[in-house]
Design a binder for these strands. Sequence first.
RNA 1: GCCGGGAUGGCGGAACGGUAGACGCAACGGACUUAAAAUCCGUUGGAGCGAUGCUCCGUGCGGGUUCGAAUCCCGCUCCCGGUACCA
Length: 856
Amino acid sequence: MAGYPFAEIERQWRRYWEEQKTFRTPDEPDPSKEKFYILDMFPYPSGTGLHVGHPEGYTATDILARYKRMKGFNVLHAIGWDAFGLPAEQYAVKTNTHPRVTTEANIARFREQLKMLGFSYDWDREIDTTSPDYFRWTQWIFLKLYEKGLAFQSEAPVWWCPELGTTLANEEVVDGKSEVGGYDCVRKPLRQWMLRITEYAERLLEGLDDLDWPESTKEMQRNWIGKSVGAEVAFPVCGLPDETIRVFTTRPDTLFGATYMVLAPEHPLAEKITTPDRLEAVAAYVAAAAHKSDLERTELQRDKTGVFTGGFALNPVNGERIPVWIAEYVLISYGTGAIMAVPAHDERDHAFAKTFDLPIREVVSGGDVAREAYAGEGALVNSSSEDRAIPGVAERGVSIDGLDTESARQKMIAWLEANACGQAKVNYKLRDWLFSRQRYWGEPFPLIFVNGAPKPLPEDALPVTLPDLADFQSSGQVEGPLAAAAEWVETVDPETGAPARRETNTMPQWAGSCWYFLRFIDPRNDRLLVDPEKERYWMPVDLYIGGAEHAVLHLLYARFWHKVLYDAGVVSTPEPFRRLIHQGMILGEMEYSANGERIAEADVRKQGDGFVLKRDASVPVEAHAYKMSKSRGNVINPEDVVEQYGADSLRLYEMFMGPLEQVKPWSMRGVEGVHRFLNRAWRLFVDEETGALRGRVNGVPASKEQLRALHRTIAKVTDDIERLHFNTAIAAMMAFVNAANKWDAMPRDIARAFTLILSPFAPHIAEELWRRLGGGRTLAYEPWPEVAAEYLQEDSVAIAVQVNGRIRATITIPQDAEKDAALQAARREENVAKHIGARAVKREIYVPGRIVNFVV
RNA sequence: GCCGGGAUGGCGGAACGGUAGACGCAACGGACUUAAAAUCCGUUGGAGCGAUGCUCCGUGCGGGUUCGAAUCCCGCUCCCGGUACCA
């Protein structure tokens, strides 16, 4: 395709920006300038390189960054690499290439590809989580967590694959088999590090309210934290005077409806409570449960299984002996691992009671509990023990009969507390964060074990670097590959000189991305994680753009660490990211198929709600755009697009496709479309034959019409950038070029202003046009064109005239026409008069500049 | 199941409650060309009629509010994403 020499232009300007360090942000904060910190989600430099999803978010942030610079803001826009992680390690195991080598190569490739797209990052701030200068501070934060008691050791199950001789991550195990090789895996308990994120559950929940984030993401985090308010109740165990079964319930008002109890199979009392005659059955059930993965347990529909222990507990509110069962539907990991079952008012308990023929007792009126559980609210019934004492619990029982749900809850909790068998309790679904991995390619923990007890290393011992391994093949040890590095593991306590062992686990990949945005602020500081003055100037991040796949984990973990650092006085804001946007996924091109065969779009036509073959309308055609995948063969490689159409075209197309946050299918024809637009813009100013500026670009004064066209475009583009509506901003620029193409003269001032507003979107071509239009050096810091309201004024305006809400004519009247004048002009229209006819006009509506409506 | 988001021409999409379909793609017609590509100009939601215009229908479906609804409210359908025995 002929056209403007984009390859040459883009190469030249990339080099210019790099050599001149055009986008360098000064080291010291500039209090005279308003700051704007705009951040992309930290990329993992994978071996496959960039895909078209990356430039989508990156182009959006780059447009904002460039725009804000021109608006006079001090902009922080940097990039780096979240480079620890599994793929490099797996590659090391396969080929015995050191992960560092793989990682460096991948980073080099990613950096190259990002530079190719002309993003205005301050490359002097590039960071890399695998660099000791960086992970020294990741380790430093871990020491803070440890100091505050937020890091602790615990036994937690991991996937162990005996065949591969390694532990595996959850995502590497599918249906209990290793993803690689398909070998059997088992869950093994292992001593590991946990972070007490649950301590911050309430603050993480509350903090969401004030964030300008997508509602869906905030809601996902709320669900993940999963706060429930209720009570914890202790049920004495019959025959075991020292034992109680503690349960958590959100419905303490239904305590009188508890007709049995259920323990999770892993519950510590499960064995103890079981009577000898039931031992065999219980042991078999528990063993069967232990062999199932979490997945198998939850995927087994809702069919309830369980086993009676033979044991009984005492319901503290009425002294009733109720049977204790064991069932998989109660999870050891939530609440206390045991429940009181109220089959009348809980769906799961109801199903279980039906299966095992257990009694169902209504205590909340309003439903038909024989048929189904009634989980709603209502007046309490069958809920009194006031007339008697509860042996071993209370002198006197309690009655909540007749109360509404809320009052019953309160009274019940008060009674439980008064009799020391329960209290109000808030429970969270959120679990503590399993923070260690049995891996090589991650941050080492900054602590040692002296006589088996953990001891944090002093700050000056940081960073703790990874040893080199000669062999990345499996160590065959559950502890992970580092356990094999004897010389590294065996060390001495730097304080006492006593022999010590290093921790052989490493941190998970999330660690490095929990705080990278702080390091961009002060990337080379070797004394502090971040200088407090700089941190106060730049934080919080004003706009964060990245994929919705990180809605929970990364964004929750980063918030957690940030709050810990806030408490430690390291950062000045309780939340790191003020505003968050997720870019929508880009799908492959639309595909048409009939009877499983791919069909060309040209052979398809619409019929009714669907598509059919043009040749044979009886054959229905499926139309669908699929997620890009190698196996489907619909992957678009950004490098190819850049080669064929240029980086500016790729950037522009990705923004033109549709709203940033929406899922949208790729279209190569669409790329050609925006490429044509750039060619037209180029030809507006440059003679294609000679390459020189066209003669019509000159210093003549701009006409009113030209100024109006320009200023309308400036106004629209400015407003759309602020609202992140890049697609309509581009449409406005296209409309401008279409109009300007018809002009005889192109006043230089108009050409220059248009070039400036085009520049955040298509910076290479804009820089080149700017240079040719005599703009001097880079336009990156030129002031953004101001809209002059006087040029936006239209003398006259075309408005619609309706009769009973239906349009019957359009009239052209002065912008500020009075109501009488407008109505008169409207009535003069033949078609309007015809539709009013002889009928009386009941109402006349005139919205200046908008509409006239006659109601008859 | 639950939570969130969505549905507008052949396609991607525009539209502070005020002329639905901007802009782009595709398609069709024309100019230039020996021809094609590129480029430029024009047409393009559907149906109808006495056709330079007018009428009717039209923003997933059914109701409602309003002078006026793609937009607001109520009730559905389908699609996408998340989550799932969380007591």
